[in-house]
Amino acid sequence: MAINRPRSARKSNGGMMLGLLAGVTLAIGLYLGLVYAPEDAVQGNAQRIFYIHVPMAWVAFLAFFVVFCAGIMFLWKRDPIWDQIARSSAEIGLVFTTLVLLTGSFWGRPIWGTWWTWDARLTTTLLLWFIYLSYFMLRAYAGERDRAARFSAVIGIIGFIDVPIIYMSVDWWRTLHPGPVFTSSGAAMPNSMLLAMLVCLLGFTLLYAYLMVLKFGIEQSKDKLLDYQYALAEREAEGAVTA
């Protein structure tokens, strides 16, 4: 145990730096978004939620892309490290997807006059949320560690590939089935808004990296702990036999 201490201390030092960097960038980003950037002419201050909503959506998709890649690598190489990466990223992705759905609703209420609409982007995000919820349910019910890793890798791959197809099908369904369709204002942003958005994007990406470092460390420790428990149980069983 004593041998491990300096290494984990060094690791957390690097993580601390990353966390600090993410915190500072996010603080600057929030200042730019909430104070420096001008109020939106049409939407008023409600528009400012975009500075956290859009970066969180980006982090969610990035996280699930990492789950997808790590899933392929796990099924190919069978190295548990890929599963540790995948499940760390999936958890962060699920949290951010939840926040994206919530912040989107908060914005939709004053601007669209409704909490929810079945538009392609919203529906796809909701389905994405369900897919990764089932990812964790499958892990919980799969029992054995290796089986959980293999099964969830498959869901991570299928789920990610399915996302653009879901988007396309909902989009067509909407266009062929007219209703209250909303499009976000894609007009050119003033530079100050763009700057705030970019800083926030960077800040949230750093936050993702920081959370990944933390979560990955936890998942590695969990696996190590399980290994120790197995080894201990085996040794006890042997002791029982010889006694």
């Binding site: 897919i131 089932s134 349910m137 499958l138 019910y141 799969a142 299928i158 399915d162 879901i166």
Partner: peptide, 19 residues
Amino acid sequence: STRSREVMLPVLMFPILLP
């Protein structure tokens, strides 16, 4: 091959089958 397989199948299938 999971516990509570009757619950797991629809939860896995419905979102992926949406298209």
